[in-house]
Write a protein that binds this DNA or RNA. Structure first.
Lengths: 220, 220
DNA sequence: TCTTTTTCTGACCGTATGGTCAGGTTGAGT
DNA sequence: ACTCAACCTGACCATACGGTCAGAAAAAGA
């Protein structure tokens, strides 16, 4: 599992960036990317290993060399977006108050919705169908994270830094609103005349969401 | 296609409530209900006609007597929830201002999330996967509806009845937040200790959402 | 009662899917 | 140059799926 950055060369002279382990990581990465897209577009049941293989540019059998089953591949895809969200939530803790913390959290989650719409969709699909694969995450990591953030919010309320709102429902609203831009991107595009949101429109969206939420909790 | 409310009796003396047409409607209803649940739990690709038939308590072949294909059955399920939402939106128009209109709209949509969680999930799944089946609805009915409501919101803003926010992003926030309670009900239940929201908790949710949104747009 | 129409169903079919495997290829280690 | 483990792949398999159909059963109409 150790890194091997020796940068050796193969017979044909092509630079093999980092030997075997590196190549493996690259292949796994391309499979995960393809899987994320296919699972997002077709759902777990509708996705086929053949299509994932085609998108990744690999024979189907090779796919099973890297990932034993469809479900294990799917699980990795779901874990991925979950970890991205968790990391983004750090901004929440480092903040000194709700205006800064929640504002930054909205910004971060909106950015993720823009850059990882497929991951968000796969997660949404998984939870909607009863989280058959990642139920354990919900009961451990997510629950802990949520309670931790609820404590922070309650402290801000106690310190008079924001209005008295239920922390859980506030978090649900943040999740729902930000992820909506990823999960329902197709609907939003249709209502936007068939075009994806432009840079300016994304800025507008972030500003608008922050404006309503922050004013809604008595900040700014 | 005409109604037949004659209420005739069959040979065995059992009251046949409303003859053939009535029985047909009842069977279709039970199939649609079963389909809604199965599609919500497994997605379109994951759902099987066999399972829908089992849930409805019918042989699979009989299902195809009432609905030609899996897709036509699915379409009917999606159209259903869409029409329910459209009807609920009437409260928006009849209102004299944002506090009343948007407040009532939130209440109505939260009620639907509680009473038709499966329909909401099927809709979400359909849109997330690019709306392959109901794209026409998005481009006609939904677009018209949205633009109509945007006009009303802009008028309220012009009349100084609420803060200046982009109507579209406000609507997205309303949709996202209210539907989240249906689409992510499993996640919410898990974070609620594994139990569905109680009556009181639903009231709390509605109050909390309305409170944040209405204050967020400068009302109340 | 006899005929006709609608409703129902077990058995069946072609296809596509997730997964397997034997055997080939490659390239790092020596 | 040789070895061996890691990597790759076409061909294959059992299963499950959506959909069909001939014909039974039931109800309506005469």
């Amino acid at each position: 599992m150790k890194d091997n950055e020796s940068g050796k060369r193969t017979k044909n002279g092509q630079a093999s960036r980092g030997s075997r382990a590196e190549a493996r990581r690259a292949t796994e990465e391309s499979i995960l990317k393809a899987a994320e897209r296919v699972f997002a577009e077709a759902g777990f049941g509708g996705a086929t290993m053949q299509l994932i293989a085609d998108v990744a540019g690999l024979p189907k059998a090779n796919l099973h060399y890297y990932f034993e089953t469809k479900e294990s591949l799917y699980r990795r895809v779901v874990e991925r977006i979950f970890n991205i969200w968790l990391e983004a939530a750090d901004v929440f803790d480092e903040a000194s108050g709700p205006a800064e913390g929640i504002g930054a959290y909205i910004d971060a989650k909106m950015e993720i919705s823009r850059n990882h719409p497929n991951g968000s969709k796969v997660w949404a699909s998984e939870v909607m169908h009863g989280a058959p694969v990642i139920q354990d995450y919900l009961e451990t990591t997510l629950r802990d994270w949520t309670e931790g953030r609820a404590v922070i919010i309650r402290r801000w309320i106690a310190e008079g830094k924001m209005a008295e709102v239920d922390p859980h429902h506030l978090l649900y609203m943040l999740w729902a609103t930000t992820q909506h831009y990823a999960d329902f991107s197709h609907q939003i595009e249709t209502l936007n005349g068939g075009a994806p949101l432009s840079d300016a429109q994304w800025e507008e969206a972030k500003t608008c969401v922050k404006s309503i939420v922050l004013r809604g909790i008595g900040v700014s």
